[in-house]
Amino acid sequence: MKKTNAVRREPFTDAQLLMTITIAIFIGMYLLAMIFLGGGFMHPQQVIDMLNDNVSLIVVACGLTIVMIGGGIDISVGAVTSLVVMSCVLYLNGGGNIFVAILLALGIGLAFGAVHVFLISYLEIQPFIVTLAGMFFARGMTTILSVNPQKVNHEGFANLRDAKIEIDWLGYTANNGNLIPARIELGVVVAIAIVILVFILLKFTRLGRGFYAIGGNQQSALMLGINVKRTRFMSYLICGLLSGISGFLFMMHTGAGNATNAAGMEMNAIASSIIGGTLLTGGVGNVIGTFFGTMTLTTIKKIVVSSGLNQPWWQSITTGGMLCFFILLQSVVLSRRAKKKKKT
């Protein structure tokens, strides 16, 4: 990506432009849903539910955004999430400690990240193949641990799972006159904190700028004195760590482990990143965009359900159509800008 260097002098960078478009479309879509569909969309709880249901997707997509900015890909994230859920559930049911379970989650994530990046960075194997093998391994291990769904029977964990932040003024009055406060799960707080942390990491730290540099042009990054291998190592390591966290958050949301947990999550995460304006070629991307990308995907699904298209196929078909729209939009916007740049 040669253009990033030159474009940066303009008031809007590619990533910012694409992110702004995503945010505008998200807000516009939500407003339209409020006007035409009303009902559930009028309550703040709807937005909070969207967050509650998608905490692990948001966290995973953040990790994936970092890897994609660095010019790599990690398709094992969903499978690692599933493996973490299953192993933590089994550990807790065996009478484990919650803190050790958290450490276990982080450890599994980090281990996957470290093995992947060793193979990618030091043995120069294509990231797609390595993480594909990682995905197979994690999915296989999950079923080896248990084929049957497992429910957590752990008191401390049950308390943690049911702990919710209740906000009265965002709530609504039910038909029988009771005030129902808005309920936010603890996972949402963690997820938003991670989004902010990753944003700071990408924007203001040396390491974060390094990710953009190696994704933009590896050769130039090397000449600038950036340790390319170490930077790439960190990007996959952070992604692995976030997959581990995402697994724990997934367990906190569902409270059960199942071999088919988080199926297809890697593709959803990639789609979120793309909608948010991250390019697979590397060097361009923004984690705030990724966050809104996740929300946009969820909103589409909610709109399809509540507008009465009940046949099971409409959700994915509209998601696919939406994805097509965003991808085409990105391509057109970027090529127009590239042309404009050539003229000046």
Binding site: M267, I274, L280, S316, G320, G321, L323, I327
Partner: peptide
């Protein structure tokens, strides 16, 4: 449109089986 193949085919991957 010069989109990377994996991204371009992600569209059909998402909705193909539903179609």
């Amino acid at each position: 449109f010069n989109i990377q193949p994996m991204i371009a085919t992600l569209i059909l991957y998402t909705c193909g089986r539903s179609i």
